[in-house]
Every structure is written in C-alpha cells, then in structure tokens.
Amino acid sequence: MTEENETAEKVHYICQTYVEKKTGRSGQASLHIDKQFQYTTAAQAQERAERECRSDACAGADAYLLVEDPASGEVGEPVFLVRLGNVPEFDTF
C-alpha cells in the first residue's frame, strides 16, 4: 500500500432499517434498528433502503454515508442520501 492510500478518507455507504417495538405496559411503540447493510456506492445503499421500506415488517429506512479517517479512526456525522418511512430524528441517531 502506498502512503497516499493509507491516509485517504474512506467512505462507507450504509442502508439501515428500523422496526417498531412496543415497550412497557402502555404498549407505546418505539423505533429500533433492525438491519444494516454496507455498500460500495450511494446508489446501491439508496436502492436497498427503498426496497426494504416496501416490506410490511419495516417501519422505515435510511441510506447515508459516513466518512472515516483511517489514520485517526474518527468517523464524521452521517450524510443522509434518503430517509423513508418512520425514522428517528437526527438527534437520536
């Protein structure tokens, strides 16, 4: 590996799905992460989110990207490509 490749930022394209689960005695529903898939392109992540969201079991889906600095291991804030259905507020992400 060259030094340039070792310091280049790495982009992760993620599709994350959510399900609603009833909690407590009140039976109030809350969102929980169900599945996560990683892809090599933004289009692949977005297509998967759209496909997953059509499922009756899926409450919602996000497709987003994360930029990782391999030298420090730090990961930036998610950049959403698409948010479909019932998804959590960004603050709770």
Score class of each variant (00 low, 15 high):
residue 57 A to D: 09
residue 5 N to R: 08
residue 55 S to P: 02
residue 20 E to W: 01
residue 48 R to Q: 10
residue 31 L to N: 06
residue 26 S to Y: 12
residue 39 Y to N: 10
residue 53 C to A: 05
residue 73 G to Q: 11
residue 33 I to D: 01
residue 62 D to S: 04
residue 67 V to F: 10
residue 74 E to S: 14
residue 62 D to I: 06
residue 74 E to M: 13
residue 59 A to V: 02
residue 57 A to Q: 10
residue 55 S to C: 07
residue 77 E to N: 11
residue 51 R to C: 07
residue 10 K to Y: 04
residue 12 H to G: 02
residue 82 V to D: 02
residue 81 L to I: 06
residue 79 V to H: 07
residue 50 E to M: 08
residue 47 E to L: 12
residue 82 V to N: 04
residue 47 E to H: 14
residue 49 A to K: 05
residue 46 Q to D: 05
residue 75 V to L: 04
residue 13 Y to L: 14
residue 64 Y to N: 05
residue 2 T to P: 00
residue 35 K to S: 15
residue 39 Y to E: 03
residue 58 C to V: 11
residue 29 A to C: 03
residue 90 F to Q: 15
residue 36 Q to D: 11
residue 78 P to H: 02
residue 82 V to P: 00
residue 76 G to D: 09
residue 70 P to A: 05
residue 7 T to R: 14
residue 78 P to S: 03
residue 67 V to Y: 02
residue 83 R to E: 08
residue 60 G to Q: 04
residue 65 L to A: 06
residue 3 E to Q: 14
residue 62 D to C: 04
residue 84 L to V: 06
residue 12 H to P: 02
residue 89 E to Y: 11
residue 22 K to Q: 13
residue 36 Q to R: 15
residue 69 D to R: 11
residue 54 R to Y: 01
residue 39 Y to R: 13
residue 65 L to F: 13
residue 68 E to T: 12
residue 18 Y to Q: 04
residue 37 F to M: 08
residue 65 L to Y: 13
residue 55 S to L: 11
residue 67 V to I: 14
residue 5 N to T: 07
residue 15 C to I: 03
residue 40 T to C: 03
residue 57 A to H: 11
residue 13 Y to H: 15
residue 3 E to A: 15
residue 48 R to M: 12
residue 24 G to D: 01
residue 79 V to D: 02
residue 40 T to N: 05
residue 81 L to T: 01
residue 34 D to Y: 15
residue 4 E to V: 00
residue 69 D to W: 02
residue 18 Y to E: 06
residue 73 G to H: 09
residue 32 H to Q: 03
residue 33 I to N: 03
residue 23 T to H: 08
residue 38 Q to E: 07
residue 74 E to W: 06
residue 10 K to H: 08
residue 91 D to V: 13
residue 85 G to T: 09
residue 26 S to E: 11
residue 70 P to I: 00
residue 85 G to F: 05
residue 8 A to R: 12
residue 10 K to S: 06
residue 93 F to I: 15
residue 90 F to D: 15
residue 29 A to G: 06
residue 59 A to W: 00
residue 88 P to D: 09
residue 32 H to D: 05
residue 3 E to V: 13
residue 83 R to N: 08
residue 41 T to D: 00
residue 93 F to W: 11
residue 17 T to Q: 03
residue 50 E to G: 10
residue 3 E to H: 12
residue 41 T to V: 02
residue 46 Q to M: 09
residue 9 E to M: 03
residue 87 V to A: 00
residue 41 T to Y: 01
residue 87 V to Y: 01
residue 89 E to V: 15
residue 81 L to K: 03
residue 56 D to Y: 09
residue 71 A to I: 02
residue 92 T to Q: 10
residue 34 D to E: 14
residue 16 Q to S: 03
residue 2 T to V: 07
residue 39 Y to K: 12
residue 5 N to D: 09
residue 49 A to D: 06
residue 51 R to L: 08
residue 38 Q to C: 07
residue 6 E to V: 00
residue 74 E to P: 04
residue 50 E to K: 14
residue 43 A to C: 13
residue 25 R to A: 14
residue 90 F to M: 14
residue 11 V to H: 15
residue 63 A to L: 09
residue 55 S to Q: 12
